[in-house]
């Protein structure tokens, strides 16, 4: 999840910053020097927005996202495989057959279930971890910079590297087995069989908790000084302060983190692919793996496109919530109140 997620961090950071600006803006009403984000209050300029400047980005969006998406949808109604690939435009049209096959005669639903449950479990574990780490490094102490840097290591490592290292550690009689062996635990196979599901979750947690940590940190930094002072004056102890004063501030960034993280996990191909190989043990045959195998091992491009489309719809649900969340966030009254 590392590389793609950086965009999300930026988005979330901007959202947080915007809120902070607004908070400031509430005190010093929009002056001449106020920069763009306060667009909503400057309706006049909205009319003359230089929309043409969106053209380069728009063209890229169309070429990189919209066209493949449309092609993918088109492919999903074709009987496109190794036999028809060469003249794929004229591959036989078979309507919804691919979708029917994907839903009834393929492990797609099983894969969906695996993907969603694994993502959710990984997410539920990383959330408290990330928050705890963010809270722990919120106040300055000696060596804080070092600790914060160390926290980011799993996040900056490419997924491929993470998965390779873990795969080596999880080999039968590998480092993990030996370490557990010294305390008398014989855990069995990590890379095959039912336990693979938990292996995947474990590695996913290791790789992705810093993402939550980062977003939680950005949320914490948006908390005004006055808030800390006020709660101190009111005599709130640390837990009460955390629970009733600080956490509400984190609700926004963390719900974003939750959604983005879920999407990442559901989409994560590299991790299971490198950890378990192809064919994957049936306990970790998650959506991206299934789509990949269908496409590039069985050459059922049409069927695979149908699967991809179904998973797109699946992912569109949290995506929709995410977009709504961002929008609501923007429309909110200034002040970062939750």
């Amino acid at each position: 999840m590392s590389t793609d997620a950086s965009n999300e961090v930026r988005v979330a950071a901007v959202a947080a910053a915007t809120r902070a600006t607004r908070a400031a803006g509430a005190e010093t009403p929009a002056g001449g020097g106020q920069p763009a984000p306060a667009g909503r209050r400057r309706l006049l300029t909205e009319r003359n927005r230089p929309l043409w400047m969106l053209i380069p980005g728009g063209v890229l969006m169309i070429v990189i996202i919209v066209l493949p998406l449309l092609l993918g949808i088109y492919m999903s109604v074709l009987n496109l495989d190794q036999y028809t690939l060469r003249k794929w435009i004229s591959a036989p049209f078979i309507g919804v057959d691919n979708f029917v096959e994907a839903l009834t005669a393929s492990p797609l639903l099983h894969a969906v279930w695996l993907s969603v449950s694994y993502s959710l479990i990984a997410m539920l574990v990383t959330l408290p971890l990330g928050i705890a780490a963010a809270v722990a490094t919120q106040n300055a102490f000696r060596g804080r910079a070092v600790v914060r840097s160390i926290f980011l290591i799993p996040y900056v490592l490419p997924s491929f590297v993470v998965a390779t290292v873990w795969r080596i550690m999880f080999q039968p009689e590998g480092v993990v087995d030996k370490a557990l062996g010294t305390i008398g635990i014989h855990a069995g196979l990590w890379l095959n069989g039912p336990q693979t599901f938990w292996t995947l979750i474990l590695v996913q947690i290791w790789a992705s908790w810093p993402f939550i940590y980062l977003l939680a940190l950005s949320g914490l930094q948006a908390v005004d000084h006055e808030v800390h002072e006020a709660s101190a004056l009111d005599g709130a102890l640390w837990w009460n302060k955390l629970r009733f004063v600080i956490f509400p501030y984190l609700k926004g960034p963390l719900s974003l983190a939750f959604l983005i993280g879920m999407l990442h996990h559901i989409n994560n191909f590299t991790l299971p692919f490198v950890l378990f190989g192809i064919p994957a043990p049936s306990d970790v045959e998650v959506l991206p793996i299934l789509t990949y195998v269908t496409s590039f091992q069985s050459f059922r491009f049409g069927l695979s496109a149908a699967m991809a489309f179904i998973s797109l719809i699946l992912i569109a649900i949290p995506l929709f919530i995410y977009l709504r969340a961002v929008k609501l966030d923007d429309a909110e009254t200034p002040g970062g109140k939750k």
Binding site: L69, L71, P288, F301, A305
Partner: peptide, 16 residues
Amino acid sequence: MRMRKPAQLGVIATLA
């Protein structure tokens, strides 16, 4: 942006 990957898996070769 999230939607890109799954769509990509099936489609990237064709698009390219």
